[in-house]
Simulated assay, not measured.
Amino acid sequence: MSTPFAHVIGDPIAQSKSPLIHGFWLEKLGIAGRYKARHVKPGELGAYLSKHRENGSWIGCNVTMPHKQTILPHLDALDPVAELLGAVNTVVRQENGTLIGFNTDAPGFLEPLQPVLKSQHLFRMARIIGTGGAARAIIAALSDNGFTLVVAGRNPAKARALLDELAGDGEHHAIGIDHFRQPTDFAFDDREGCCDLVINASPLGMAGNPELVFDWSHAPPRSIAYDIVTNPVETPFLKAARAAGHPTINGLSMLIGQAAIAFEKFFGAPPPRDHDAELQELLIK
């Protein structure tokens, strides 16, 4: 049998860091496998999947924009998380050619938060900026972990609809994104024993996009700032958070967490996570 291989597909795709991540792990583990980026335009998606599902060496693909939702009709089955979110970012080919869709956004997002989430808290609140596909996964994941959510978007009605669909019961709030631009003199209550997150789940701050304007007077003391943007890794949002005394999590943490789940599904072995620091350095270069 020829060498097993997987792809990451999208349009555009040249910016993807996934080949570097998977290639790094394959080399560290000495696994005979290949992982490459493939530029697949929207009109080519069906043909790409039809061709590769017949290839016994193709073990699957990761899926980026704009295919995360349009790929659904081409798949044979979805895991429960992908079905809930209505989006797929990992496709795994079974031996009989069946294609199963997964979504690793939620567990990938939660992974760097696990040390915090293991603790008991009196109250958990997250301020989430963005209403796109990543925000869907983040809303569902944090709701499942007992967070009260405030979702900010350009269209508050869309933010409200996401909360109603994905967050279940609770006093969740939808607001306009401009709410966080101006300073506030709000006096936060005692946050000892509480867990607060401020998450940029939007493209704001990404190279080529406008900066995210967030005034850190809106965040309680010790709030964790989490930016899912990976280019640049050190966003103005994170720099401002650090300057205001907040701990930070960058987008590479989520990216690596997502990739780790997909890697094990593709190649049948957990990646060597003791090399994460080395991998992050490579990804930043």
Results as ranks from 00 to 15, higher is better:
Q258T: 09
M206I: 01
T184L: 10
Q182Y: 01
A259R: 00
G193H: 11
T235M: 07
A243I: 11
A259P: 08
G176T: 08
S253M: 13
R242H: 12
R222S: 14
G257N: 09
S253W: 14
I177C: 11
E171P: 06
V198D: 00
L255H: 11
T248I: 15
S202F: 02
G170S: 09
G257C: 04
P203C: 04
T230G: 00
A240F: 06
V229L: 04
P210K: 08
L212G: 06
A244M: 04
A187P: 00
L212R: 02
H172L: 03
F188G: 02
A207E: 09
V229K: 05
M206F: 02
F180A: 11
M206N: 04
G170W: 04
D215I: 04
G170T: 09
A243H: 14
P183S: 13
A243L: 15
E192R: 14
F186Y: 15
A225W: 06
A225I: 05
C194L: 00
R191S: 15
N231M: 09
V198I: 11
L252M: 09
P183K: 14
K239V: 15
T235S: 08
L255R: 08
A241R: 14
N200P: 05
D190V: 09
A174Y: 06
S253T: 06
T235G: 06
E192C: 11
Y226T: 11
G205H: 02
P247K: 13
E234P: 01
A219N: 06
C194I: 00
G205S: 03
A240R: 14
I177R: 12
D215F: 02
